[in-house]
Amino acid sequence: MCTAGSAPSRLSMTNLSSGVPTVAEAIVKTRTGAGGVEIRDVTTPPPGPGQVRVEVAAAGICGTDLHILDGEWPTTPPVVMGHELSGTVVDCGPGVSTDWLGAGVVAEVLITDGTCGYCLRGQRNMCPNRRAIGRQADGAFTRFVVVPEVNLHRVPEGLDLVEAALAEPLACVLGALMDRPVVAPGDRILITGPGTIGLLAAQVARMAGGQVTVLGTAKDRYRLAVAEQLGFATLGLTAQVEPSDVEERYDVVIECAGAAAAINLGLAACAKSGTLVQLGIFGKSVQTDMDQFCLKNIAFVTSFAAAPRTLERALVLLSSGQIAADPIITNVSALRDWPEVFAHSRGGDGLKYMFDPRL
């Protein structure tokens, strides 16, 4: 893991007067449509009833953030971007236990009503009145963020806060692969897209007993090298893979690229009575031959955002070392470097890029 500069440890906590707003620079989506992203000074209000203020230690760039930059994902601007976060609780609003003060935490992305049937069943990610941190509510690409107490999950002792910021994307993977078990021991698994989600999914599938191959393209040289470092077979580095090259060879295909070509190749690669899991976000409509799901009896599985139970499980897997985080985290940078960092994140010459707003 490469880190730009040095940052305070998780044990150091900003001296912050309770109930006082803070002003800090932030990466803000200023308008709808493509572009409209810039650094601005923003005021973070003190936490209200049932809320806490978190000093952000690490905030990862997700593919969703690139879709927001391109105007392909709905937002309510102006809004501070960023939803994959870890940090330290520095202020508690009315009704919140001060036991949270100084705690290392991650946060669920979605702010929900807490009263609908989905919320009451623990499926807060399906709440019809949800708002997303970093899209409809100010997010983590700034020094401080206010989130509901109910969204918090404590980071286990010994887990670095930078690595803990991977809990949210890992929880999304777990929701698709483990909530309703998809992989059986001995299954042949194809991962399309060797990015962060792809390499987390590869590790989860291997934990379940799958024999995993990771597919990329020539531009994914760095990412495929990391996949091999993690012990996975790879395809696509030296020659473009055509559907006929992989036809019906895999019991489970996990699509993580968010590209039409990848899902169409995945359909070809999936064996009869197999399973296709969609984890990549397209950001727009795509065309695929839906008849193939019927003709080949392929089950289609997906998942949206992190649920409370999957986020807790993600933290356990990261803290126990069952999921390797360090090879996936490429760089931690200052907010002011965002144009270059976003370009690298899009370009495929790394994996997870993060910001530390304290730098």
Rank of each mutant, 00 (worst) to 15 (best):
S6D: 06
S12E: 14
S17F: 11
S18T: 14
V20A: 12
E25I: 15
T30F: 11
G33A: 14
G35L: 06
I39L: 02
T43E: 13
T44V: 10
P47Q: 04
G48C: 12
V52N: 03
C62Q: 04
G63A: 12
T64R: 01
D65H: 02
H67W: 05
I68D: 01
E72A: 13
T76N: 14
P77C: 09
P78N: 10
S86L: 02
G87D: 06
T88L: 05
V89Y: 05
C92V: 14
G95I: 07
L101N: 04
A103N: 08
E108L: 09
I111G: 00
I111N: 01
G114F: 00
C116L: 11
C116K: 07
Q123M: 14
R135F: 13
G139C: 07
F141A: 00
V146R: 03
V150P: 03
V150A: 08
H153D: 09
R154C: 11
L159F: 04
L161Q: 04
V162Y: 04
A164S: 06
A165N: 05
L166Q: 02
P169L: 04
G175R: 00
L177Y: 06
M178I: 07
M178N: 06
M178V: 13
D179G: 09
P181D: 11
V182A: 04
V182L: 02
V183N: 00
V183Y: 00
V183H: 02
A184L: 12
P185K: 05
G186Q: 08
T196G: 09
I197Q: 02
L199G: 05
A202S: 09
A202V: 07
A205C: 11
M207G: 10
M207R: 08
T213E: 03
V214W: 03
L215I: 12
T217F: 07
T217E: 06
D220W: 03
V226E: 02
V226D: 02
E228L: 06
L230V: 13
L230T: 12
L230Y: 08
A233T: 13
L235M: 07
L237S: 07
Q240D: 15
E242M: 15
P243H: 10
E247I: 13
I254R: 01
I254W: 01
E255K: 10
A257H: 08
G258S: 13
A261D: 12
I263M: 09
N264F: 11
A269P: 04
C270S: 12
G280T: 00
C294Y: 15
L295D: 10
V301F: 08
S303E: 06
F304H: 13
P308Q: 09
R309Y: 09
E312R: 13
E312I: 08
R313H: 15
V316L: 14
L317M: 03
S319K: 07
Q322H: 10
Q322F: 11
I323H: 04
A325E: 02
A325D: 05
D326A: 15
P327R: 03
V332L: 10
V332K: 00
S333Q: 01
A334R: 01
E340D: 12
E340A: 07
A343L: 11
A343D: 07
H344S: 14
R346D: 07
K352L: 09
M354L: 15
L359D: 00
